[in-house]
Structure formats: structure tokens, C-alpha cells
């Protein structure tokens, strides 16, 4: 009896959490012209149509680029920072930590607005560059946090051992530290990628002619029409995220790092 109640609660919660996602999949598979559930017959026409919409294609490429290169840049900045914060006695370490983590505290929309107003406009920076900077900053806290927690689990005497065996500090890092935090770095990359790709508020103000991230483009498209193509695209993107996370989970037990 108690078991039954448990499963009922779990079932209802999961329906509430996952149900909308299922509805989206089917709403996108509608054969009709309008958004509806249950759909007016099933077809893949909207799923296929998504690929023919030029602005979606452009914004997909932009979002992909931002997610990949923004996250890489964040890791490039974040790994050394996480390493230094973990292994060195730094003056003002707490301040550095707070500064690096600040992008997580400030709501994205404010960051986007601030960058637009005080960087893009006065310094004549292109929107794409600003977006790249903003997404890098956005992912930076995740990169530092996930890499830090991997480093925490790696005893520092291993590096000392490497040094005593003849390594320079840099060799100790590349030969001993990096191979052992590979999982954490990969997890940080995936987490950063998904966060950046799905990000809306930061990019809200940072768009220009022909420069829009995919989620923003979808929001704009929805203002014109409610046809099932956005549902289809949403479902496709969700599948993409899930596939990435699923593979990551299989490869390295990703959920440990979230």
C-alpha cells in the first residue's frame, strides 16, 4: 500500500515534469496547419520544414559556435584559475573566487543589457564578439566549479611526486593532473555547452541583423505564428541535448558533476 502511494506520487510528478516534453514531440509531428494536441494526424512535415527555414539554420550555427567556442574559452580561463585557487596560497583568493563566480549570481538579462550599452555601442564591438564574451563569462563559473571539484579529489602530493621524479611544474600538470581530471573537464564542457546553447536572457539584448541565437530566433518566430515548426524544433533540440548528456553519462557518469 505504501509502495503504491509512493509510485503514484512519483508517477504524477514525472508526468508533470516530462509530460510537456512528450506533448511537444507529438505536437510537432502534426499533419495539420495549427499547433494542437492530440495532433491532427501524424506526419514529419514540420520536422522537415525546420531544416528549410533559413533563419533557424543561421541561428543554429551561431548558437553551436557560441556554445563550443565560448565553453572552450571558459575552460581555457577556468582550468588555470581553478588550479591556482586549489593549489596555491593566493592573496585575495576569496575575492578572486567571488569575482570568477559572479556571472552565476547576476541575472543574464542584466549582463546582456550592460554589455550592449557599455561595450557594443560605445566601443563599437560587433554583436557576435559581445555574444561570445558573454557566453564565455556565463560558462566560466561552471568550468571553475566542476574542475575545482575534480581537483579537490586529486591529492596534491601526486604532483609533488611527479616533480621529485624530474617533472617541471608544467609537466606535472600535463602528465599527471590533466589525465586525472579529464572526466571533470569533459563534464564541465558538456555542462557549459548545454547551458550556453539553451541560454536566452544573456542573448536577449545582444542580437543584431542576422545575428540571433537559436532560442531567441525561436521566440521571435513564435511572435509571428504558432505553427508546429517551433514544437518540432524544440523536440529536435531536446533530443540533441539528451543524446549528449546520455553519451556523457555512459562515458563518465556525468550526473556526479552536475
Amino acid at each position: 500500500m505504501k509502495n503504491l502511494t509512493s509510485w503514484a506520487i512519483i508517477g504524477l510528478t514525472l508526468i508533470f515534469l516530462i509530460g510537456p516534453f512528450i506533448i511537444i514531440i507529438f505536437a510537432g509531428a502534426s499533419a495539420g496547419e495549427s499547433l494542437a494536441f492530440p495532433p491532427d494526424g501524424l506526419s514529419l512535415r514540420w520536422y522537415l520544414k525546420v531544416f528549410t527555414i533559413e533563419s533557424f539554420r543561421q541561428s543554429f550555427v551561431l548558437s553551436m559556435g557560441l556554445a563550443i567556442f565560448g565553453t572552450l574559452a571558459a575552460l581555457l580561463l577556468g582550468i588555470p584559475a581553478a588550479y591556482a585557487l586549489n593549489r596555491y596560497e593566493l592573496p585575495g583568493a576569496e575575492t578572486i573566487r567571488t569575482v570568477v563566480a559572479s556571472p552565476i549570481i547576476v541575472p543574464g538579462i542584466i549582463v546582456g543589457l550592460a554589455l550592449l550599452r557599455y561595450m557594443v555601442i560605445p566601443l563599437d564591438v560587433t554583436v557576435t564578439v559581445a555574444l561570445f564574451m558573454a557566453h564565455t563569462a556565463l560558462v566560466l563559473p561552471y568550468a571553475v566549479r566542476v574542475v575545482s571539484s575534480s581537483l579537490n579529489n586529486l591529492r596534491s602530493d601526486m604532483e609533488e611526486a611527479a616533480v621529485l621524479l624530474g617533472c617541471t611544474r608544467l609537466q606535472a600538470f600535463t602528465k599527471v593532473v590533466l589525465p586525472n581530471i579529464r572526466g571533470g573537464v569533459l563534464a564541465a564542457f558538456i555542462l557549459g555547452f548545454v547551458t550556453s546553447f539553451n541560454q536566452v536572457p544573456v542573448s536577449l539584448f545582444l542580437s543584431g541583423p542576422g545575428v540571433r541565437t537559436l532560442p531567441i530566433d525561436m521566440l521571435a518566430y513564435m511572435e509571428i505564428t504558432y505553427d508546429p515548426s517551433v514544437a518540432a524544433l524544440s523536440a529536435l533540440l531536446a533530443f540533441m541535448s539528451l543524446a549528449i548528456v546520455f553519451i556523457a553519462e555512459r562515458l563518465l557518469g556525468f550526473s556526479r558533476y552536475v
Binding site: A36, V200, M218, S234, L237
Partner: peptide, 13 residues
Amino acid sequence: MISPVARTYAWIV
């Protein structure tokens, strides 16, 4: 892990 846009869009349906 799913885009909030996708998750919110479902509520329109």
C-alpha cells in the same frame, strides 16, 4: 538539460 524555450512552449499546446 532541455531548452527552457522547448519546455515552456509545451504549455501553449
